[in-house]
């Protein structure tokens, strides 16, 4: 069972948290004109990589706050924990963010102008 360091409450057992899946999926608005297929990238497609994964967690039994976690799905090593709305700072996690297929999707391109920051989304 993982120890996850809640940015607000500190290290706690995994049972106190809920995993919210892939992080940094920018949400296109209804008036962003993209095709159904492009919209599906936002709505349905989720990564499941072997290795470093940027994901969202919520301290559900604690402060109920969301945050981002860069976790290696093979070793379960938690490389970085960083606030909702920001991007990872560590090199490996940064690379994971930058090299994600999602960065090139029409869904993200449509959504990004509506965001103040690239990381400011689900």
């Amino acid at each position: 069972m993982l120890i996850i360091t809640c940015p607000f409450c500190g290290p706690r057992d995994e049972v106190e948290f809920a995993c919210g899946g892939e992080a940094h999926i920018a949400r296109p608005l209804a008036d962003n004109k993209i095709s159904d297929a492009d919209f599906a990238d936002y709505l349905f497609m989720r990564d499941n990589p072997k290795g470093l994964f940027l994901e969202r967690w919520r301290h559900s039994a604690g402060c109920r706050r969301w945050f981002n976690v860069a976790r290696d799905t093979v070793s379960n090593e938690i490389v970085e924990i960083y606030p909702m709305g920001s991007l990872p700072a560590k090199t490996a996690a940064k690379t994971t963010y930058k090299t994600s297929w999602r960065r090139d999707t029409a869904a993200e391109k449509a959504a990004t102008p509506s965001r103040s920051k690239a990381g400011g989304s689900k």
Partner: peptide
């Protein structure tokens, strides 16, 4: 409640 909190915190923190 969790759903609403999620949107407030992750999508519409403004």
């Amino acid at each position: 409640l969790d759903w609403m909190e999620e949107w407030l915190q992750t999508e519409w923190p403004d």
